[in-house]
Amino acid sequence: MKSRYLELDAVLLELETALRQRSPFSLVRVGDGENIVMAQETVWTMEEVLQERWSIKANKGQKGLTLPNLVLRDLVAASLQRATIVGILPPDDQTIKAPDYLKRALTDKLFAYYGIEPALTCHACVNRDLARTPRFWQLLAGKRVLLVTREIQELQNALVQDPYNLNIAAALPFDGWDDLPETLQWIAAHPDEFDVALFSCGVNAVVLAEQAAALSGKVAIDFGKANNIILKGSPN
Rank of each mutant, 00 (worst) to 15 (best):
S3H: 12
D195T: 01
I88K: 09
L106Q: 02
Q51V: 08
V160R: 09
Q62P: 03
Q153T: 09
N157W: 06
V43M: 06
V207S: 04
M38T: 12
A98Y: 07
L67D: 00
N236C: 05
K2F: 15
P118Q: 01
E34Q: 10
I230G: 02
N227T: 11
A119N: 06
E47R: 14
S55W: 05
G202P: 02
T17D: 14
G233K: 10
K225Q: 14
Q94R: 14
R128V: 07
G224H: 07
E52L: 09
R144A: 09
K232E: 11
V11K: 00
W44M: 11
G87Y: 04
R150A: 10
V37F: 06
M38R: 05
P99G: 00
E47P: 13
D162H: 13
T45Q: 06
N165I: 02
Q21N: 15
L6R: 06
P163C: 08
L67V: 01
H123K: 13
L70R: 03
Q81K: 08
E47V: 13
D92Q: 13
V49I: 03
R144T: 05
T107D: 01
V71H: 13
H123F: 11
T66F: 12
P99N: 01
L139M: 12
R135W: 13
F25P: 01
R104D: 03
A112C: 09
L180I: 02
D108V: 05
D178M: 12
T107E: 06
A214H: 09
A10N: 14
L50G: 06
E193L: 12
R132Y: 11
W54C: 11
A226P: 03
L110Y: 09
